[in-house]
């Protein structure tokens, strides 16, 4: 009996939401952080973004609407740009009236790994690369820098639409794809991201000694004649690792900023930099 109703709704499935509505789900996924709080993170915004769709599914079923709203008010915290996949996938299941415990279980199983992939791709790989490149253009006063940055992120904004369709069309199949690939993708993104961070440290952390030391009549330029001979950019690299070590000791990042300023001001006062 139950399987029969399932197959009936499935056959009608694509008639309920138009393509345009699924695209709008991608756009609406931008609302997830609207009522962010530490207690349940994205939950209220996540519910809000999907609400019009549930209103359509449960038009004549106020109990169903209340049930799905309550279910989605549970804690959720994932990577904002990847929400369209999750929402599309959940919507296709909600539309098929899959058992609510199953949907909830899947949602809870997926948002964590998706947060990992999303952070690795968007914050740790794309942001340093795009930010680094457009900032290096902008530094000389070239307005193409900010324009390039804006266009790349406009494109990423737009990708929410195909991602929503992807999630919706794949339905439950998306779960296997995400679970199979999440490890490899964040692994590969880490490789790319760390290579770029290595380059950014060398290019953009500016630390050069100006002090010259007199040693028995001969004057030695510490930066050019000593540090650069050992390895260029030695100071920036060492300083980043000093800060990294402090962070590993669970020191608040604000202190690192204060240490940086203190160091710079002391160096300036002594005339060493």
């Amino acid at each position: 009996m139950e399987s029969k109703t399932n197959s009936e709704t499935k056959s009608q499935r694509h008639s309920i939401f138009s393509k345009h509505e699924i695209s709008m789900l991608g756009i609406r996924s931008n609302l997830v952080q609207s009522s962010f709080s530490y207690e349940r993170m994205h939950a209220p915004g996540f519910t809000w973004a999907q609400l019009p769709y549930w209103e359509k599914i449960y038009r004549d079923d106020p109990k169903g609407l209340s049930r799905v709203m309550t279910d989605n008010m549970e804690f959720i915290n994932s990577s904002p740009p990847l929400y369209p996949i999750l929402m599309g996938l959940l919507l296709s299941m909600e539309e098929d009236h899959v058992d609510s415990q199953t949907i909830k279980g899947l949602k809870n199983a997926l948002f964590g790994p998706m947060a990992g992939i999303g952070d690795a791709i968007f914050w740790f790989t794309i942001m340093p690369i795009v930010g680094g490149i457009s900032a290096s253009i902008a530094k000389s006063g070239n307005v193409l820098g900010p324009i390039l940055f804006f266009l790349v992120y406009l494109f990423l904004f737009w990708t929410r639409i195909p991602l929503a369709h992807l999630g919706y069309n794949l339905g439950a199949k998306a779960i296997d794809i995400i679970e199979d690939n999440s490890k490899i993708i964040s692994h590969v993104a880490s490789i790319l991201g760390l290579t770029v961070i290595g380059a950014l440290i060398a290019s953009y952390v500016k630390m050069k000694l100006t002090i010259k030391v007199g040693a028995g009549g001969a004057v030695i330029d510490l930066q050019r004649q000593l540090l650069d001979k050992i390895f260029p950019n030695l100071l920036p690299f060492a300083f980043v690792f000093l800060l990294y070590w402090l962070l590993k000791k669970n020191i608040n990042p604000i202190w690192l900023i204060i240490v940086t300023f203190a160091l710079a001001i002391v160096m300036s006062l002594l005339g060493w930099m």
């Binding site: 920036p236 980043v240 800060l243 990042p253 300036s268």
Partner: peptide
């Protein structure tokens, strides 16, 4: 000088996570 060194803080934070 601090403005030039400041990126180090951000990179160290990225390293902590990655």
């Amino acid at each position: 000088l601090a403005g030039g060194i400041l990126p180090a803080v951000g990179f160290a934070m990225l390293l902590k996570v990655m």
